[in-house]
């Protein structure tokens, strides 16, 4: 869709930004000055020894921000892994076996494609009040359509190639051929889709948290933003409270998207002119 090369300013700044967020997610306690649960004076301004001030219950906002990286990234990547596994399984089965399996699975994909995802996830989350892992499940289960389609069309090409035919002649089972012959040859179309699924899941998480669905004590960036909005940080114009989590979500999603698009551009052999 969008063609970037895997070099140049965009690519490196994407890698750099994502690197920062990953470091934040792995070593929160080394970076954050305080424990995110520790309480100080509420509504402190940024100058007061707290880099980004404190929120309504006196938590240090910068520390919350650092530890939120882990939650938001886990939700994004874990749901994208789930999405990719489902999409890969459906696409491979449809493309490899063709015929009835293809008709049924792609029909299913078309049907699921139309159902509006965010409203569905809102309804589900309202019933379930999901915690971290249930949220990953809900976000991951409903967005595999585009991966399934891409995988199917690539599988249709690859399955006609010589090495697949020889593997068939040598008597390997279908499962073995799919896993060790086809997947390695289509994985490059899956990688960018995986990155985009991660980005989409992070935005969905932020949206659900904004509505107060999901676990409010999870401490993700979406939760922080939601509290800043519902507990007066936004109306009182406390930019140090609502701006940082929003910017973190946006920058993180942008960096992941840029990296995804760079992979996509490469496999199509198209460079930005």
């Amino acid at each position: 869709m969008i063609h970037f090369e895997r070099q140049g300013l965009l690519w490196y700044s994407g890698i750099f930004l994502l690197g920062i967020f990953i470091v934040m997610a792995i070593f929160p306690s080394q970076i954050a000055p305080y424990d995110p649960g520790e309480r100080f004076m509420p509504y402190e301004e940024p100058e007061s020894g707290h880099l980004l001030g404190t929120n309504d219950i006196g938590n240090d906002i910068f520390s919350e921000l650092v530890s939120g990286a882990r939650i938001s990234l886990i939700i994004g990547f874990a749901s994208a892994i789930l999405t990719t596994i489902i999409g890969l399984a459906i696409g491979l089965t449809a493309g490899y076996f063709r015929g009835l399996a293809d008709e049924v699975l792609m029909g299913l994909t078309d049907v699921v494609l139309i159902i509006p995802k965010i409203p569905l996830i809102i309804v589900l989350a309202a019933f379930l009040r999901p915690g971290l892992w249930l949220l990953v499940l809900v976000l991951g289960v409903f967005s595999w359509e585009s991966i399934a389609r891409v995988v199917r069309s690539k599988t249709l090409q690859v399955r006609e190639m010589g090495f697949v035919k020889s593997a068939e002649c040598m008597g390997f089972g279908s499962l073995h051929i799919m896993i060790s012959e086809i997947i390695p040859n289509i994985i490059y179309v899956v990688t960018p889709k995986f990155m985009l699924a991660t980005a989409a899941a992070m935005i969905s998480e932020a949206s659900l948290s904004f509505l107060g669905l999901g676990d409010p004590s999870m401490g993700s960036w979406g939760n922080m933003l939601s509290f800043a909005f519902s507990r007066g940080g936004f109306v009182r114009d406390m930019w140090w409270w609502y701006l940082p989590p929003g910017l973190c979500i946006t920058l993180c999603v942008i960096s992941i998207t840029v990296i995804g698009f760079a992979f996509e551009g490469e496999d199509e052999g198209v460079r930005i002119e």
């Binding site: 932020a206 929003g246 979500i249 840029v258």
Partner: peptide, 28 residues
């Protein structure tokens, strides 16, 4: 006109908007 400065700028700006949660953009 891909490759011109204007085109690159507008592409990057669109990507930034598309990657922002809509309600955060609205708040800004």
């Amino acid at each position: 006109r891909a490759g011109t400065l204007k085109s690159r700028f507008i592409t990057c700006a669109s990507m930034a908007v598309a990657c922002t949660p809509p309600y955060f953009l609205a708040m800004l």
